[in-house]
């Protein structure tokens, strides 16, 4: 199976082309958020470096969130459109699971996290089983303090991974004590190779048209509207005219 993996959930950008478990080409950058300009040129280059054309791919795998809304939009729009237009399989995986997949210690608990501002994070808890991150607590948007309360119940060490761990390291260390273990910094960047290997065996989405990022949060406007209109029916919000 020839596979293209795309990860643009946050500031890092990572693209990989795999042939089954063999890595043919990969590029990871960590230089900015201009993914809209850089993603497709890197995809083109990676596919041609792998000696392939887009048409020869069997599957597109994308990190579908959570993460930066803009980053997710670019990665998911590109992956969804490529799979749709060339009739390829499409797989979407958790951006947090991809990061957790950088840790390979069997049985280890891993907490990948992305900053969601104002002391909130996107995070989930994973346990490495048979070399794969398996969900222990689902991906969620939560305050650092509440998350620590949930993690304390585990009474075992948890490896925190992600570039945004640094800004919460003091709070996590204070609340979790020796449970808090910081991943080595070279593991903080999500790798499309890891995404590709996880996506190789995952079940493709049934309907590509329905595929959207997993933002994990409604927009502020929708949250406020729902609070004021709890009983109102959800109209079809988009109509063909």
């Amino acid at each position: 199976m020839k596979l293209l993996a795309i990860e643009t959930s946050n500031r890092p950008l990572s693209v990989a082309v795999l042939d089954d478990t063999k890595v043919l080409a990969t590029t990871t950058t960590n230089v900015g958020r201009n993914h809209s300009s850089t993603l497709l040129p890197i995809i083109e280059k990676s596919i041609s470096q792998a000696g392939l054309t887009a048409d020869e791919l069997d599957r597109v795998v994308v990190a579908a969130g959570p993460g930066s809304y803009t980053g997710l939009r670019i990665g998911v729009t590109t992956a969804k459109t490529l799979a749709f237009t060339l009739h390829k399989e499409l797989v979407g995986l958790s951006s947090l699971a991809v990061l957790a997949g950088n840790i390979v210690t069997e049985g280890q608990l891993v907490a990948p996290l992305f900053d969601a501002r104002r002391d909130n994070i996107f995070t989930g808890l994973y346990r490495i089983q048979a070399g794969q991150p398996v969900t222990e607590l689902p991906d969620q948007h939560i305050s650092v303090a509440e998350w620590c309360q949930q993690l304390a119940a585990y009474q075992e060490s948890i490896v925190f991974v992600g570039s945004d761990v640094a800004q919460y390291a003091d709070a996590l260390q204070t609340q979790l004590g020796s449970q808090f273990v910081r991943a080595q910094p070279q593991l903080d960047l999500p790798q499309a190779v890891v995404l590709g290997l996880m996506g190789r065996t995952a079940t493709p989405v049934a309907k590509i048209h329905d595929f959207v990022p997993n933002y994990l949060r409604l927009t502020q406007a929708e949250r406020e509207w729902l609070a004021k209109h709890p009983k109102e029916d959800h109209a079809p919000y988009v109509e063909k005219i």
């Binding site: 803009t70 939009r73 459109t81």
Partner: peptide, 16 residues
């Protein structure tokens, strides 16, 4: 954000 969707989809179709 709205423009990005059209731009990235169009670029992808053109490339493919």
């Amino acid at each position: 954000g709205a423009l990005l969707v059209g731009v990235n989809a169009a670029k992808t179709v053109a490339y493919a």
